[in-house]
């Protein structure tokens, strides 16, 4: 199932919460939705889950509009909100049973669905407990079970790992990977970017309601680490066109020119300048900067082998280098680099 967010905008009075964003993804993958607080993530997610209506633009699930046919879309979308289950005086099993009945599951089919989901989310021991007696992590699991009770093809999650301890986060990651293996498309927003990097196949970054970058994780990291990005998707996304985050699209996309690899070399104090000059002699070196008289940062065009050759010229010239690092930026660094922390 292809999920397509097309020119989505949402305006609250004078505030533009979401400003003409477009991206798409397909099933079997996990996509992160990243942005500072107040960037418009929850608004976008609520529109995708048919809880809110866009001012303009739309979300399509296999071409079916979420604005016009919300009832049909709700059958294929599961939504896990950032808030926790709040019903009082009701047990876990009764709570899930209510949602199973609400989705029209009957008799043995409902019992089977409930048993499966309780086993999958490891809620067996909690089924007779009241919701108010559960910890936050347990409630998150109940919330996930509720979102999955009707076996949706697309799972949309808003801050699912917020407030969870490391063990609960690890369990959640494992569950998400299993769901992705079951060919479900998972779209989740989170502030824990290091964990997103571990599980996500792609990401969408927004700030002040505008799309900053979108693409497969390799593409996004290649943007900041240099090397060859697999897809031109991120560049397209910024112009308001649809950025396809799916792996298939990435594989078939044309290759683009390398952008450069960031390297840093540590030298003895006062010996950085000769290293800088030596690096500048090489035609593949794009820029070199010196920091604190003992650190050289260079951007070198080419792949890993070419970078090694360029740095090798420094060693060949007999200059002293104490350490050498290839600077790898993660999702967190990318986020810090391209967002400015502005809120609306």
């Amino acid at each position: 199932m292809k999920t397509e967010v097309r020119n989505l905008s949402r305006v609250f009075g004078k505030t533009v919460a979401v400003n003409d964003i477009s991206f798409s993804f397909e099933d079997g993958n996990i996509f992160g939705f990243i942005g500072p607080n107040g960037a418009g993530k929850t608004t976008t997610i609520r529109i995708m889950a048919t809880l809110d209506l866009a001012t303009s633009g739309d979300v399509f699930y296999d071409g079916v509009s979420a604005t016009l046919y919300p009832e049909a879309v709700r059958r294929v979308v599961g939504y896990m909100p950032d808030s926790l289950p709040g019903y009082k005086d009701i047990q876990v099993w009764e709570y899930l049973d209510f949602f199973a009945r609400s989705f029209g599951l009957k008799g043995a089919e409902r019992t089977r669905a409930l048993n499966d989901i309780v086993e999958f989310t490891n809620l067996g021991e909690l089924r007779g407990k009241f919701l108010f007696a559960l910890s936050k992590g347990m409630k998150q699991r109940v919330s996930l079970a509720r979102a999955l009770i009707h076996n949706p093809k697309v799972l949309i999650m808003d801050e699912p790992a917020a407030g969870l301890d490391p063990r609960a986060r690890h369990e959640l990651r494992t569950l998400l990977k299993i769901l992705a293996e079951q060919k479900k498309a998972i779209f989740l927003s989170s502030h824990i970017l290091s964990e997103l990097q571990d599980i996500c196949d792609g990401a969408v970054i927004i700030e002040q309601g505008k799309l900053l970058s979108a693409g497969t994780l390799d593409d996004l990291l290649a943007q900041v680490n240099g090397g060859a990005p697999a897809s031109p998707a991120p560049a397209r996304a910024q112009t308001g066109e649809s950025a396809d985050l799916s792996g298939a699209a990435a594989a078939s996309a044309p290759q683009t020119a390398p952008k450069g690899v960031s390297v840093s070399l540590k030298t003895p104090r006062g010996e950085a300048e000769p290293v800088r000059l030596k690096l500048l002699e090489h035609p593949l070196t794009r820029s070199v900067d010196v920091f604190d008289d003992d650190e050289v940062h260079a951007i070198i065009e080419g792949n890993d082998a070419e970078v090694s050759r360029v740095v090798g010229t420094v060693f060949a010239a007999g200059l002293t280098v104490l350490s050498f690092n290839r600077n790898q930026m993660g999702l967190e660094e990318l986020f810090m680099k391209i967002t400015q922390g502005k809120v609306q």
């Binding site: 709700r74 009082k88 609400s102 009707h150």
Partner: peptide, 20 residues
């Protein structure tokens, strides 16, 4: 009281996301 709590807790929203 119960209905008002379900509304303010947004719990009703999730019931509305079903086929109810």
């Amino acid at each position: 009281q119960r209905f008002a709590e379900e509304r303010s807790d947004k719990e009703l929203n999730y019931a509305m996301l079903t086929t109810l």
